[in-house]
Design a protein around this nucleic acid. Structure first.
Lengths: 216, 216
DNA sequence: TGTACATCAGTGAACGCGCGTTCACTGATGTAC
DNA sequence: TGTACATCAGTGAACGCGCGTTCACTGATGTAC
Protein backbone atom coordinates (compact mmCIF):
# COMPACT_ATOMS: atom_id res chain seq x y z
CA UNK A 1 0.00 0.00 0.00
CA UNK A 2 1.20 3.43 -0.81
CA UNK A 3 -1.21 5.30 1.39
CA UNK A 4 -0.26 5.85 4.96
CA UNK A 5 -3.78 6.57 6.01
CA UNK A 6 -6.67 4.16 6.28
CA UNK A 7 -9.08 6.80 5.03
CA UNK A 8 -10.81 6.22 1.74
CA UNK A 9 -9.28 9.41 0.48
CA UNK A 10 -9.30 10.36 -3.16
CA UNK A 11 -6.71 13.05 -3.35
CA UNK A 12 -3.76 10.79 -3.81
CA UNK A 13 -5.18 10.08 -7.22
CA UNK A 14 -3.61 12.03 -10.07
CA UNK A 15 -5.40 15.30 -10.70
CA UNK A 16 -7.04 14.34 -13.94
CA UNK A 17 -8.64 11.25 -12.45
CA UNK A 18 -10.28 12.95 -9.55
CA UNK A 19 -14.04 12.78 -9.86
CA UNK A 20 -15.78 16.13 -10.11
CA UNK A 21 -17.91 15.75 -7.09
CA UNK A 22 -19.50 18.06 -4.68
CA UNK A 23 -16.21 18.19 -2.88
CA UNK A 24 -13.74 19.61 -5.28
CA UNK A 25 -10.73 18.01 -3.65
CA UNK A 26 -8.14 20.58 -4.58
CA UNK A 27 -10.11 23.77 -4.69
CA UNK A 28 -7.48 25.75 -2.86
CA UNK A 29 -4.85 25.07 -5.50
CA UNK A 30 -7.36 25.59 -8.29
CA UNK A 31 -8.30 28.99 -6.88
CA UNK A 32 -4.68 30.09 -6.82
CA UNK A 33 -4.08 28.91 -10.37
CA UNK A 34 -7.18 30.61 -11.68
CA UNK A 35 -6.27 33.78 -9.83
CA UNK A 36 -2.94 33.86 -11.61
CA UNK A 37 -4.68 33.39 -14.95
CA UNK A 38 -7.04 36.25 -14.28
CA UNK A 39 -4.28 38.56 -13.07
CA UNK A 40 -2.15 37.75 -16.09
CA UNK A 41 -5.05 38.56 -18.35
CA UNK A 42 -6.28 41.82 -16.87
CA UNK A 43 -4.13 42.81 -13.93
CA UNK A 44 -4.54 42.49 -10.20
CA UNK A 45 -7.29 45.02 -10.03
CA UNK A 46 -9.42 42.86 -12.31
CA UNK A 47 -9.22 39.89 -9.98
CA UNK A 48 -12.60 39.18 -8.44
CA UNK A 49 -13.81 36.35 -6.32
CA UNK A 50 -16.88 36.15 -8.48
CA UNK A 51 -14.90 35.51 -11.62
CA UNK A 52 -12.81 32.90 -9.87
CA UNK A 53 -15.95 31.07 -8.88
CA UNK A 54 -17.37 31.34 -12.36
CA UNK A 55 -14.26 29.92 -14.01
CA UNK A 56 -14.14 27.01 -11.61
CA UNK A 57 -17.87 26.38 -11.93
CA UNK A 58 -18.15 26.81 -8.22
CA UNK A 59 -20.07 29.22 -6.07
CA UNK A 60 -18.71 32.70 -5.57
CA UNK A 61 -18.33 32.14 -1.89
CA UNK A 62 -16.52 28.83 -2.07
CA UNK A 63 -13.11 30.54 -1.78
CA UNK A 64 -14.04 31.61 1.73
CA UNK A 65 -13.60 27.99 2.82
CA UNK A 66 -9.90 28.31 1.97
CA UNK A 67 -9.01 31.98 2.37
CA UNK A 68 -10.27 34.34 5.04
CA UNK A 69 -10.75 37.10 2.48
CA UNK A 70 -9.41 38.43 -0.76
CA UNK A 71 -6.35 40.04 0.83
CA UNK A 72 -5.35 36.70 2.29
CA UNK A 73 -5.58 35.11 -1.12
CA UNK A 74 -3.36 37.80 -2.61
CA UNK A 75 -0.85 37.39 0.19
CA UNK A 76 -0.71 33.66 -0.47
CA UNK A 77 -0.08 34.29 -4.15
CA UNK A 78 2.71 36.75 -3.37
CA UNK A 79 4.34 34.31 -1.01
CA UNK A 80 4.44 31.51 -3.57
CA UNK A 81 5.71 33.99 -6.14
CA UNK A 82 8.63 35.10 -4.02
CA UNK A 83 9.56 31.53 -3.21
CA UNK A 84 9.66 30.56 -6.88
CA UNK A 85 11.46 33.77 -7.70
CA UNK A 86 14.16 32.96 -5.18
CA UNK A 87 14.48 29.46 -6.60
CA UNK A 88 14.83 30.76 -10.12
CA UNK A 89 17.53 33.27 -9.19
CA UNK A 90 19.43 30.73 -7.17
CA UNK A 91 19.31 28.13 -9.89
CA UNK A 92 20.45 30.65 -12.49
CA UNK A 93 23.46 31.50 -10.37
CA UNK A 94 24.30 27.88 -9.64
CA UNK A 95 24.34 26.98 -13.30
CA UNK A 96 26.40 29.96 -14.41
CA UNK A 97 29.84 28.64 -13.59
CA UNK A 98 32.45 30.23 -11.40
CA UNK A 99 32.66 33.74 -12.84
CA UNK A 100 30.73 36.06 -10.59
CA UNK A 101 30.06 38.47 -13.40
CA UNK A 102 28.57 35.60 -15.39
CA UNK A 103 26.52 34.67 -12.38
CA UNK A 104 25.22 38.22 -12.17
CA UNK A 105 24.32 38.17 -15.82
CA UNK A 106 22.52 34.84 -15.50
CA UNK A 107 20.53 36.17 -12.56
CA UNK A 108 19.61 39.29 -14.47
CA UNK A 109 18.35 37.28 -17.39
CA UNK A 110 16.44 35.03 -15.01
CA UNK A 111 14.90 38.06 -13.32
CA UNK A 112 13.52 39.51 -16.50
CA UNK A 113 12.42 36.10 -17.76
CA UNK A 114 10.55 35.51 -14.56
CA UNK A 115 8.81 38.86 -14.87
CA UNK A 116 7.80 38.08 -18.43
CA UNK A 117 6.88 34.46 -17.89
CA UNK A 118 5.10 34.88 -14.57
CA UNK A 119 3.50 38.24 -15.05
CA UNK A 120 0.79 37.56 -12.53
CA UNK A 121 3.15 36.52 -9.77
CA UNK A 122 5.40 39.45 -10.53
CA UNK A 123 2.51 41.87 -10.35
CA UNK A 124 1.28 40.54 -7.05
CA UNK A 125 4.78 40.51 -5.62
CA UNK A 126 5.86 43.97 -6.59
CA UNK A 127 2.43 45.41 -6.95
CA UNK A 128 1.68 47.61 -9.84
CA UNK A 129 3.59 50.52 -8.41
CA UNK A 130 1.89 51.86 -5.34
CA UNK A 131 -0.77 49.21 -5.44
CA UNK A 132 1.57 46.84 -3.72
CA UNK A 133 0.23 45.38 -0.56
CA UNK A 134 2.52 45.71 2.37
CA UNK A 135 4.02 42.27 2.71
CA UNK A 136 3.47 40.56 5.99
CA UNK A 137 6.50 39.57 8.03
CA UNK A 138 6.75 36.15 6.46
CA UNK A 139 6.37 37.52 2.97
CA UNK A 140 9.07 40.14 3.28
CA UNK A 141 11.40 37.54 4.69
CA UNK A 142 11.04 35.58 1.45
CA UNK A 143 11.56 38.77 -0.53
CA UNK A 144 14.75 39.46 1.37
CA UNK A 145 16.05 36.05 0.39
CA UNK A 146 15.95 36.94 -3.28
CA UNK A 147 17.74 40.21 -2.67
CA UNK A 148 20.22 38.47 -0.40
CA UNK A 149 21.24 36.06 -3.15
CA UNK A 150 22.11 38.99 -5.37
CA UNK A 151 24.00 40.80 -2.64
CA UNK A 152 26.02 37.72 -1.75
CA UNK A 153 27.01 37.15 -5.33
CA UNK A 154 28.32 40.68 -5.54
CA UNK A 155 30.22 40.40 -2.30
CA UNK A 156 31.78 37.14 -3.41
CA UNK A 157 32.71 38.73 -6.71
CA UNK A 158 34.43 41.56 -4.88
CA UNK A 159 36.36 39.13 -2.70
CA UNK A 160 37.44 37.32 -5.84
CA UNK A 161 38.61 40.60 -7.35
CA UNK A 162 36.16 40.45 -10.22
CA UNK A 163 33.81 43.21 -9.19
CA UNK A 164 34.62 46.80 -8.33
CA UNK A 165 34.72 47.95 -4.73
CA UNK A 166 31.75 49.58 -3.08
CA UNK A 167 28.93 48.74 -0.73
CA UNK A 168 27.51 45.43 -1.98
CA UNK A 169 24.04 46.54 -0.94
CA UNK A 170 24.21 49.67 -3.09
CA UNK A 171 25.57 47.73 -6.04
CA UNK A 172 22.89 45.09 -5.62
CA UNK A 173 20.24 47.80 -5.54
CA UNK A 174 21.58 49.24 -8.71
CA UNK A 175 21.57 45.93 -10.58
CA UNK A 176 18.13 45.17 -9.19
CA UNK A 177 16.86 48.54 -10.37
CA UNK A 178 18.17 47.93 -13.86
CA UNK A 179 16.53 44.55 -14.36
CA UNK A 180 13.39 45.71 -12.61
CA UNK A 181 13.12 48.69 -14.93
CA UNK A 182 13.68 46.51 -17.97
CA UNK A 183 10.95 44.18 -16.77
CA UNK A 184 8.42 46.90 -16.17
CA UNK A 185 9.13 48.86 -19.31
CA UNK A 186 8.86 45.69 -21.36
CA UNK A 187 12.23 45.95 -23.06
CA UNK A 188 13.07 42.36 -22.22
CA UNK A 189 11.81 39.14 -23.77
CA UNK A 190 8.12 38.64 -24.27
CA UNK A 191 6.14 35.98 -22.45
CA UNK A 192 7.30 33.44 -24.99
CA UNK A 193 10.85 34.24 -23.97
CA UNK A 194 11.88 34.82 -27.56
CA UNK A 195 11.48 38.39 -28.79
CA UNK A 196 14.15 40.81 -27.65
CA UNK A 197 15.87 38.14 -25.64
CA UNK A 198 19.18 39.77 -26.42
CA UNK A 199 18.46 43.06 -24.74
CA UNK A 200 19.11 41.88 -21.22
CA UNK A 201 22.51 40.35 -21.98
CA UNK A 202 23.36 43.48 -23.96
CA UNK A 203 22.44 45.69 -20.99
CA UNK A 204 24.32 43.63 -18.47
CA UNK A 205 27.40 43.45 -20.67
CA UNK A 206 27.25 47.22 -21.01
CA UNK A 207 26.87 47.51 -17.27
CA UNK A 208 30.01 45.43 -16.77
CA UNK A 209 32.21 47.34 -19.13
CA UNK A 210 30.72 50.77 -18.52
CA UNK A 211 29.31 53.53 -20.64
CA UNK A 212 32.47 55.58 -20.85
CA UNK A 213 34.47 55.04 -23.96
CA UNK A 214 38.05 54.08 -23.33
CA UNK A 215 40.96 54.39 -25.71
CA UNK A 216 41.80 50.87 -26.85
CA UNK B 1 -6.38 98.75 -20.42
CA UNK B 2 -4.82 95.38 -20.05
CA UNK B 3 -7.80 93.35 -21.14
CA UNK B 4 -8.22 92.73 -24.81
CA UNK B 5 -11.84 91.81 -24.46
CA UNK B 6 -14.73 94.10 -23.64
CA UNK B 7 -16.37 91.39 -21.53
CA UNK B 8 -16.67 92.02 -17.85
CA UNK B 9 -14.62 88.92 -17.19
CA UNK B 10 -13.22 88.11 -13.80
CA UNK B 11 -10.61 85.51 -14.61
CA UNK B 12 -7.87 87.93 -15.38
CA UNK B 13 -7.86 88.72 -11.70
CA UNK B 14 -5.20 86.95 -9.66
CA UNK B 15 -6.46 83.62 -8.34
CA UNK B 16 -6.74 84.64 -4.74
CA UNK B 17 -8.96 87.59 -5.57
CA UNK B 18 -11.51 85.71 -7.55
CA UNK B 19 -14.85 85.72 -5.79
CA UNK B 20 -16.21 82.31 -4.85
CA UNK B 21 -19.36 82.50 -6.80
CA UNK B 22 -21.66 80.01 -8.36
CA UNK B 23 -19.36 80.00 -11.30
CA UNK B 24 -16.09 78.75 -10.02
CA UNK B 25 -14.03 80.46 -12.69
CA UNK B 26 -11.15 78.01 -12.78
CA UNK B 27 -12.77 74.74 -11.92
CA UNK B 28 -10.96 72.83 -14.62
CA UNK B 29 -7.56 73.69 -13.20
CA UNK B 30 -8.75 73.10 -9.67
CA UNK B 31 -10.00 69.64 -10.62
CA UNK B 32 -6.65 68.71 -12.06
CA UNK B 33 -4.77 69.97 -9.02
CA UNK B 34 -7.04 68.15 -6.62
CA UNK B 35 -6.77 64.99 -8.69
CA UNK B 36 -3.01 65.09 -8.33
CA UNK B 37 -3.33 65.53 -4.59
CA UNK B 38 -5.64 62.56 -4.30
CA UNK B 39 -3.46 60.34 -6.48
CA UNK B 40 -0.36 61.31 -4.54
CA UNK B 41 -2.12 60.39 -1.32
CA UNK B 42 -3.66 57.06 -2.23
CA UNK B 43 -2.79 56.11 -5.77
CA UNK B 44 -4.62 56.36 -9.05
CA UNK B 45 -7.12 53.72 -8.15
CA UNK B 46 -8.27 55.80 -5.22
CA UNK B 47 -9.12 58.76 -7.43
CA UNK B 48 -12.87 59.28 -7.52
CA UNK B 49 -14.94 62.04 -9.01
CA UNK B 50 -16.96 62.12 -5.83
CA UNK B 51 -13.95 62.91 -3.69
CA UNK B 52 -12.82 65.58 -6.11
CA UNK B 53 -16.20 67.26 -5.81
CA UNK B 54 -16.14 66.98 -2.06
CA UNK B 55 -12.70 68.56 -1.74
CA UNK B 56 -13.65 71.43 -3.98
CA UNK B 57 -17.00 71.90 -2.26
CA UNK B 58 -18.68 71.39 -5.56
CA UNK B 59 -21.16 68.86 -6.81
CA UNK B 60 -19.96 65.42 -7.82
CA UNK B 61 -21.04 65.94 -11.36
CA UNK B 62 -19.47 69.33 -11.88
CA UNK B 63 -16.35 67.80 -13.46
CA UNK B 64 -18.52 66.62 -16.34
CA UNK B 65 -18.70 70.23 -17.52
CA UNK B 66 -14.95 70.08 -18.15
CA UNK B 67 -14.10 66.46 -18.87
CA UNK B 68 -16.17 64.00 -20.85
CA UNK B 69 -15.51 61.28 -18.31
CA UNK B 70 -12.95 60.05 -15.84
CA UNK B 71 -10.66 58.56 -18.49
CA UNK B 72 -10.48 61.93 -20.23
CA UNK B 73 -9.44 63.55 -16.98
CA UNK B 74 -6.68 60.99 -16.48
CA UNK B 75 -5.48 61.47 -20.04
CA UNK B 76 -5.28 65.21 -19.48
CA UNK B 77 -3.24 64.67 -16.33
CA UNK B 78 -0.86 62.34 -18.14
CA UNK B 79 -0.38 64.82 -20.95
CA UNK B 80 0.57 67.64 -18.62
CA UNK B 81 2.86 65.26 -16.75
CA UNK B 82 4.77 64.25 -19.85
CA UNK B 83 5.16 67.85 -20.93
CA UNK B 84 6.64 68.86 -17.58
CA UNK B 85 8.75 65.74 -17.55
CA UNK B 86 10.23 66.63 -20.92
CA UNK B 87 10.92 70.16 -19.72
CA UNK B 88 12.67 68.90 -16.62
CA UNK B 89 14.90 66.50 -18.55
CA UNK B 90 15.74 69.09 -21.14
CA UNK B 91 16.60 71.70 -18.57
CA UNK B 92 18.77 69.26 -16.65
CA UNK B 93 20.74 68.51 -19.79
CA UNK B 94 21.08 72.15 -20.76
CA UNK B 95 22.51 73.09 -17.39
CA UNK B 96 24.96 70.21 -17.21
CA UNK B 97 27.76 71.67 -19.30
CA UNK B 98 29.36 70.14 -22.34
CA UNK B 99 30.27 66.66 -21.12
CA UNK B 100 27.70 64.24 -22.45
CA UNK B 101 28.28 61.84 -19.61
CA UNK B 102 27.59 64.67 -17.19
CA UNK B 103 24.47 65.48 -19.14
CA UNK B 104 23.35 61.89 -18.85
CA UNK B 105 23.95 61.93 -15.14
CA UNK B 106 22.02 65.17 -14.71
CA UNK B 107 19.10 63.74 -16.64
CA UNK B 108 19.13 60.58 -14.55
CA UNK B 109 19.03 62.58 -11.36
CA UNK B 110 16.26 64.74 -12.78
CA UNK B 111 14.30 61.63 -13.75
CA UNK B 112 14.33 60.15 -10.28
CA UNK B 113 13.68 63.53 -8.69
CA UNK B 114 10.67 64.02 -10.89
CA UNK B 115 9.35 60.60 -9.95
CA UNK B 116 9.77 61.39 -6.28
CA UNK B 117 8.55 64.96 -6.39
CA UNK B 118 5.63 64.44 -8.76
CA UNK B 119 4.47 61.02 -7.69
CA UNK B 120 0.98 61.57 -8.97
CA UNK B 121 2.02 62.65 -12.42
CA UNK B 122 4.51 59.82 -12.62
CA UNK B 123 1.89 57.29 -11.65
CA UNK B 124 -0.58 58.52 -14.21
CA UNK B 125 2.08 58.69 -16.89
CA UNK B 126 3.60 55.29 -16.45
CA UNK B 127 0.65 53.73 -14.75
CA UNK B 128 1.21 51.52 -11.80
CA UNK B 129 2.55 48.69 -13.91
CA UNK B 130 -0.13 47.22 -16.09
CA UNK B 131 -2.68 49.73 -14.92
CA UNK B 132 -1.30 52.20 -17.39
CA UNK B 133 -3.84 53.53 -19.78
CA UNK B 134 -2.85 53.26 -23.38
CA UNK B 135 -1.77 56.78 -24.26
CA UNK B 136 -3.64 58.43 -27.06
CA UNK B 137 -1.70 59.51 -30.12
CA UNK B 138 -1.01 62.97 -28.78
CA UNK B 139 0.06 61.64 -25.39
CA UNK B 140 2.54 59.13 -26.75
CA UNK B 141 4.02 61.82 -28.94
CA UNK B 142 4.85 63.80 -25.84
CA UNK B 143 6.25 60.66 -24.23
CA UNK B 144 8.47 60.09 -27.23
CA UNK B 145 9.89 63.55 -26.83
CA UNK B 146 11.29 62.72 -23.40
CA UNK B 147 12.83 59.52 -24.68
CA UNK B 148 14.15 61.33 -27.73
CA UNK B 149 16.07 63.79 -25.58
CA UNK B 150 17.85 60.93 -23.91
CA UNK B 151 18.58 59.16 -27.18
CA UNK B 152 19.98 62.32 -28.75
CA UNK B 153 22.28 62.95 -25.84
CA UNK B 154 23.69 59.49 -26.18
CA UNK B 155 24.17 59.82 -29.91
CA UNK B 156 25.90 63.15 -29.47
CA UNK B 157 28.11 61.61 -26.81
CA UNK B 158 29.09 58.85 -29.20
CA UNK B 159 29.91 61.35 -31.94
CA UNK B 160 32.06 63.22 -29.46
CA UNK B 161 33.87 60.00 -28.57
CA UNK B 162 32.72 60.08 -24.95
CA UNK B 163 30.28 57.21 -24.99
CA UNK B 164 30.83 53.64 -26.14
CA UNK B 165 29.56 52.48 -29.49
CA UNK B 166 26.26 50.72 -29.84
CA UNK B 167 22.71 51.42 -30.91
CA UNK B 168 21.74 54.68 -29.17
CA UNK B 169 18.21 53.40 -28.79
CA UNK B 170 19.33 50.32 -26.91
CA UNK B 171 21.66 52.34 -24.72
CA UNK B 172 18.92 54.85 -24.03
CA UNK B 173 16.56 52.04 -23.09
CA UNK B 174 19.09 50.69 -20.70
CA UNK B 175 19.70 54.00 -18.95
CA UNK B 176 15.96 54.63 -18.88
CA UNK B 177 15.39 51.22 -17.31
CA UNK B 178 17.94 51.91 -14.62
CA UNK B 179 16.49 55.23 -13.49
CA UNK B 180 12.96 53.93 -13.88
CA UNK B 181 13.74 50.96 -11.67
CA UNK B 182 15.37 53.19 -9.06
CA UNK B 183 12.29 55.39 -9.08
CA UNK B 184 9.83 52.54 -8.66
CA UNK B 185 11.81 50.65 -6.07
CA UNK B 186 12.25 53.83 -4.07
CA UNK B 187 16.02 53.73 -3.82
CA UNK B 188 16.31 57.33 -4.88
CA UNK B 189 15.62 60.50 -2.94
CA UNK B 190 12.39 60.89 -1.03
CA UNK B 191 9.77 63.46 -1.94
CA UNK B 192 11.75 66.08 -0.04
CA UNK B 193 14.64 65.37 -2.36
CA UNK B 194 17.00 64.88 0.52
CA UNK B 195 17.26 61.31 1.81
CA UNK B 196 19.37 58.97 -0.31
CA UNK B 197 20.04 61.69 -2.81
CA UNK B 198 23.44 60.21 -3.41
CA UNK B 199 22.27 56.88 -4.69
CA UNK B 200 21.43 58.04 -8.19
CA UNK B 201 24.79 59.72 -8.81
CA UNK B 202 26.47 56.64 -7.35
CA UNK B 203 24.56 54.38 -9.72
CA UNK B 204 25.22 56.49 -12.76
CA UNK B 205 28.90 56.81 -11.94
CA UNK B 206 29.06 53.04 -11.60
CA UNK B 207 27.25 52.69 -14.89
CA UNK B 208 29.84 54.89 -16.56
CA UNK B 209 32.88 53.10 -15.25
CA UNK B 210 31.42 49.61 -15.28
CA UNK B 211 31.06 46.81 -12.80
CA UNK B 212 34.14 44.90 -13.86
CA UNK B 213 37.15 45.54 -11.76
CA UNK B 214 40.21 46.63 -13.69
CA UNK B 215 43.81 46.48 -12.61
CA UNK B 216 44.88 50.01 -11.81
C1' DT C 1 -19.44 -4.80 8.18
C1' DG C 2 -23.16 -1.65 9.19
C1' DT C 3 -25.22 2.39 11.20
C1' DA C 4 -25.61 6.88 13.65
C1' DC C 5 -23.35 10.86 14.08
C1' DA C 6 -19.91 14.69 13.43
C1' DT C 7 -17.37 17.42 10.48
C1' DC C 8 -16.73 20.48 7.02
C1' DA C 9 -16.63 21.93 1.90
C1' DG C 10 -19.56 24.15 -1.08
C1' DT C 11 -24.36 26.73 -1.93
C1' DG C 12 -27.15 30.64 -3.14
C1' DA C 13 -29.84 34.39 -1.73
C1' DA C 14 -29.14 38.63 0.13
C1' DC C 15 -26.72 42.74 2.23
C1' DG C 16 -24.50 47.18 1.97
C1' DC C 17 -21.20 49.93 -0.32
C1' DG C 18 -18.95 53.08 -3.47
C1' DC C 19 -18.55 53.96 -7.88
C1' DG C 20 -19.31 56.39 -12.74
C1' DT C 21 -22.71 58.33 -15.13
C1' DT C 22 -27.63 60.31 -16.62
C1' DC C 23 -30.82 63.86 -16.66
C1' DA C 24 -33.95 67.48 -15.97
C1' DC C 25 -33.09 71.47 -13.37
C1' DT C 26 -31.45 76.21 -11.67
C1' DG C 27 -28.86 80.14 -11.30
C1' DA C 28 -25.11 83.23 -13.00
C1' DT C 29 -23.14 85.44 -16.74
C1' DG C 30 -22.78 87.42 -21.44
C1' DT C 31 -25.18 89.46 -25.53
C1' DA C 32 -28.52 91.64 -28.79
C1' DC C 33 -31.20 95.38 -29.29
C1' DT D 1 -28.15 102.64 -20.15
C1' DG D 2 -31.77 99.20 -19.58
C1' DT D 3 -34.19 94.97 -20.58
C1' DA D 4 -35.24 90.38 -22.70
C1' DC D 5 -33.09 86.52 -24.03
C1' DA D 6 -29.42 82.91 -24.81
C1' DT D 7 -25.79 80.42 -23.06
C1' DC D 8 -23.65 77.46 -20.15
C1' DA D 9 -21.48 76.14 -15.46
C1' DG D 10 -22.87 73.82 -11.59
C1' DT D 11 -26.83 71.03 -8.97
C1' DG D 12 -28.73 67.01 -6.79
C1' DA D 13 -31.60 63.13 -7.06
C1' DA D 14 -31.47 58.91 -9.06
C1' DC D 15 -29.84 54.89 -11.95
C1' DG D 16 -27.49 50.56 -12.58
C1' DC D 17 -23.44 48.01 -11.76
C1' DG D 18 -20.00 45.02 -9.77
C1' DC D 19 -17.90 44.20 -5.84
C1' DG D 20 -16.62 41.75 -1.08
C1' DT D 21 -18.77 39.65 2.39
C1' DT D 22 -22.63 37.43 5.62
C1' DC D 23 -25.40 33.73 6.81
C1' DA D 24 -28.34 29.93 7.35
C1' DC D 25 -28.37 25.97 4.57
C1' DT D 26 -27.28 21.30 2.29
C1' DG D 27 -24.83 17.53 0.84
C1' DA D 28 -20.57 14.64 0.87
C1' DT D 29 -17.20 12.56 3.49
C1' DG D 30 -14.89 10.59 7.63
C1' DT D 31 -15.32 8.42 12.30
C1' DA D 32 -16.97 6.03 16.56
C1' DC D 33 -18.97 2.16 17.99
Amino acid sequence: MLTLSTRKVQWNLPDEKRPEHYHHGRLREAIMETSLDLIAENGVRALTLREIGARLAVSRTAPYRHFADKATLLAALAKVGFARFGDVLEEARNQAGTSHLKQLEAMGVAYVRFAAGHRAHFEVMFGSGSDSLPLDAEGSQVADRAFGILRETIRDGQLAGEIVDGDPVDIARMVWSLVHGISLLGFGPGPDGVANDGFVPFSLALLQSGLRKRPD
